[in-house]
Design a protein around this nucleic acid. Sequence first.
RNA 1: CGAGGUGUAGCGCAGUUUGGUAGCGCGCUUGGUUCGGGACCAAGAGGUCGCGUGUUCGAAUCCCGUCACCUCGACCA
Length: 479
Amino acid sequence: MAKEKAFVTEIADINENFPQWYTDVIMKTQLVDYGPVKGTMVIRPYGYAIWEHIQRELDNRIKETGHENAYFPMFIPYSYLLKEAEHVEGFAPEVALVTHVGEEELTEKLVVRPTSETIICDMYSRWIQSYRDLPVLINQWANVVRWEKTTRPFLRTSEFLWQEGHTVHATAQEAEEETIKMLNVYAEFAKNVLAIPLLLGKKSEKEKFAGAVATYSIEAMMKDGKSLQAGTSHNLGQNFAKAFNIKFLDKDGTHKMPYQTSWGVTTRLIGAIIMIHGDERGLVLPPFVAPVQAAIVPVAMHKEGVLENAESLYNRLKKAGIRVKLDATDNSPGWKFNEYEMKGVPLRIEIGPRDIENKVATVSRRDSNEGKFTLPIESLETEIPKLLAQIHENLYNKASENLKNRTRIVKDMAELEKAVNDNCFALSMWCGDPSCEAKIKELYQATSRNMPFDQTPVGETCVCCGKKAKHKIYFARAY
RNA sequence: CGAGGUGUAGCGCAGUUUGGUAGCGCGCUUGGUUCGGGACCAAGAGGUCGCGUGUUCGAAUCCCGUCACCUCGACCA
């Protein structure tokens, strides 16, 4: 008991020590465990179930927009990486190289994929001959390996799970449209499934993907006002087509080089969910990805009829398509209440002798402090889905409020410094010079996030150097 | 790689200054009483003190070495 009380106190540290709170919650709710190799993460069933719901919902959307799933090998010849100059420069420091099999040295070194552009482009160069072969719209669900120096569960691990789309188009315009389209798919998905509001925009040259012509990102604001890049969509132009010699014979009888895109989101989204919706009592999971949407806690289980009523309610809700769990273990009710709150279960349903007598169930929402209320037991099949939808709305609105309240328009370096020190996003004007970006990073540890599509100016001059501004851009501290 | 810190039961820690029987809390097991906000009583199980050397009658404790992990910097979805 003492330990759990202490846990609640630690969780309450959310305001002072957000990263500590984050790892504590993840470990104590059994989402993950640390792997034996530094920087690796074991995703436990409760955490993996969240990923499965993310996968299912996002996969539907990817398919609805015309893409198909495929799978490419995780081992890539090192020489492939070397073909695109920027790409190898960007990834070489963090790739895991396979040099030996047993004692025998390999004549051609292999990398464990840090991303799949190179191997996929190699295949595309064989698959594509005619304009009739285009567009190619393929997506892959896979794991990738990037040996980062410091790691944090879900946000940055040596190996992570993701979805990577790789498309090929006949024209530059089509490729750009695809890049933006998928960014919007992510945004719709984040809003309607994860209850996360996003900032969409274009990355600066410095922050763009190694090998891309342009990178667009979705940025999310964590509860503490820091930014998290939640996904990216790249317009690769013809860079990889050139490097891998992808050509097609067009209608006019001439060979042309196609234009490509790639886009991905990762298990980092789970980290975003935790850091956006969580509170001092632990996880708060958005209903549409919660492994358990409603937990039934029988009270005074030994009393006549309690367990039978709980079981019958469980069966009814299950049949109604709700992800429901009945906890009939002999832990005390109070223990169970805290357990499911900590684990972020959106709804708790208590059922005890008093409820049975009144033909009601006692319901409690995880997302609000409004306390318990009762509902007629016969109405739950229809009421629970409504409540889940309300919880989703409420989470989205709260996150949107936070984003709005913590975003400031800044005109100069003093205001920018104040904004990031107050844990706010700084919406700034920028001259476009990378040295201004670098200076802001060095002085205030804030990086450029992205340049929103709506470029309506909020000033005339660069926040850093005071010269004429070219872009509207967000600066923020980021995870 | 630069700076700091920690390794003792499944988890969290005390014990190390001053060498002398391996401790505490939680968790776990069994039995009983409980059950509407982390219940209580009783009895149990569980550790070559990160690893290796050395000093000593005797080392978790002292010396030397080594490994691992954590935090902060540079890199990143």
